[in-house]
Nucleic acid binder design. Structure first.
Lengths: 335, 335
DNA sequence: TTGTATGCGTTATCAA
DNA sequence: TTGATAACGCATACAA
């Protein structure tokens, strides 16, 4: 039950013996105010503990400075790292991040966007889930900018940042073949997101052109435990694969652990493994996993640069595509 | 350069043929409005795509619904998990999280709190760093609630949530002794935060009462790489330790990897290891680390419950203490 | 239950 | 450069 604890520009003005406008101008970059007036205002503000009310400022300027980050499973290494990069870039650009967790229900991405509208966020960045078309249209109509990361949607209006998953997956086939592998497998979750499916299809397609069949297995959520289950499925086959491409590093870690500790499979001697994301753990020496590095910093930079760009929304093609970098480590022979 | 894209209550009122107040009341829980009026308002709002402006509402009510999360190194497993739990709990309580990254400079916690004040956040939750006393006083004076997680500060006013680190550390000595270990070591970073130091001191003190000396080593930031370095230091001693308590799981993972892969030390046969935090990776079978589980969900629940609690700030003693749970795994003999 | 009028803390406009 | 005044969108005291 808050009273009126915050000090207003009015009070500062009175103490400094100037008008509210003078106070406002003092805290508005690029406004004209005399050095003497500024000094008195700053002094009074300091003494009173005055801070500009961004709620009111946002109301006036119709620009809150808020950018919504909409994300599920935010504690997984890749997501957490992306959030870190995003908040940092946003702050550098003078914006502030509002974080919305969509772990609960399925329509919660829409709910999150509604929340973004209520707080008059200047923009929303969607890291997971797919919003309904009607709600994205509502955002855009309300002048709110939208960024979709790895969503691979074909909607016009939002900025779409994607990786070339299929092309990357193709490179894995080449690597496996060079390492002398012939019995390929793909380990995926059942999440079915565009990125994951693109990796799967890209891998299968590239293998097909080389005349190699691929055993595809899918299971559960995209996490460590699913990786273990997938290893149990693939390593108990009569025809055991000698190379596995896991859709993410988390799956790969689980897969490798089960392969080594449960099935006594030597990596890379008996089995080559490749992951995706280059999470921190991939570099840990227990895994030393060959994987694709997502250009997290570039993604964040690109997204924020587009958001703060004043040139309307017509910046030509609002779609950016990055090539993930293959990081060679010891989970694949040769290299 | 946003125009006037958002639809206001005024427009809804006109379309519904009622007054602005009627619209306001329709969206204010517990306000008196007739079913018929409500129906017409809701219909008009739906058609126009109206959403209450929380900036304006916050201005009126002097309550923004915003809670600031101030955190550094937010992509580390423990922090990321705490952020996830916090955002979830906040949303359940009808609040929204604003995330501020303080990775950059040292005074940035103060800067973050200033930002929180500017957005008139109802509360701030500090997960890392120590704010200056003057700035916390400013927050409190402005009616903003403050929660300090694992900061172990003695300030009055904020809610302080802490673990009993020292007591937990004492239990590790007992476990090591039971496992037959005699040459104890403590591996710490140079961060010097209250939690880490409490673990160190608690461990050393408990060992002393049992007449056992402890080799303490500190190095770098609190991460995986430091764990490796610490292993290099401790495992090249002429008198090699047979038990190591690492201040965090991240340090422990690095330590174990270096111990096994670089020094061919068998865990737990030749060396017992205990960590702290129970991050997800601690349960991965490459580590299977005995460690202390932080009650993350309870911490988040407690913090949010205190924040939304209407009963002034005089809820007696604003300090909560949790006992971390020792999770037994295979990095310690016996168990 | 409904409408009218007032105020929340800003910034933008305009005249001085 | 400065100050008075009008918005911004909403909630609420009060009168009807």
């Amino acid at each position: 039950m808050p009273q009126k604890p915050f000090v207003s520009a009015q009070e500062v003005a009175e103490r400094a013996g100037v008008s509210r406008s003078a106070v406002s101008r003092t805290f508005t970059p690029g406004a004209s105010v005399s050095p003497e007036t500024r000094r008195r205002v700053v002094e009074a503000a300091e003494a009173l503990g005055y801070h500009v009310n961004h709620l009111a400022r946002g109301l006036m300027r119709n620009e809150s400075g808020i950018v919504c980050l909409i994300v599920s499973e935010m504690s997984t290494p890749y997501r957490a790292n992306l959030i870190r990069a995003m908040t940092q870039q946003l702050q550098n650009a003078g914006k502030i991040a509002m974080l919305i967790n969509t772990d609960r229900s399925d329509g919660s991405v829409d709910l999150a966007l509604r929340q973004a509208i209520r707080y008059r966020a200047d923009a929303s960045i969607i890291l997971s889930g797919m919003p309904d078309r009607s709600i994205t249209q509502l955002c855009l109509k309300n002048g709110q900018r939208l960024v979709l990361i790895n969503r691979d949607d074909d909607q016009q209006g939002p900025l779409r940042i994607n990786l070339d998953d299929a092309e990357a997956a193709g490179r894995v086939v080449t690597a496996f073949v060079r390492a002398g592998c012939r019995r390929l497998a793909f380990a995926n979750s059942q999440a079915g997101t565009p990125s994951l499916m693109a990796r799967e299809h890209g891998f299968v397609a590239a293998a097909k052109t080389m005349g190699l069949p691929v055993r595809v297995e899918r299971h559960g959520p995209t996490d460590y435990e699913s990786g273990r289950v997938l290893a149990q499925r693939l390593l108990t086959l009569s025809e055991r694969p000698d190379a596995v491409f896991c859709a993410t590093d988390l799956l790969a870690c689980g897969f490798m652990d089960a392969a080594r500790h449960q099935f006594r499979v030597a990596i890379p001697d008996q089995l080559c493994v490749v992951g995706f994301d280059d999470i921190e753990q991939a570099a840990w020496s227990s895994y030393d996993l060959t994987t694709f590095a997502q250009p997290v910093e570039m993604i964040a930079r690109e997204a924020v640069a587009w958001l703060v760009n004043e040139s309307g929304q017509a910046a030509g093609d609002d779609s950016v595509r990055f090539q993930p970098n293959l990081v060679w480590r010891s989970s694949v022979r040769g290299g």
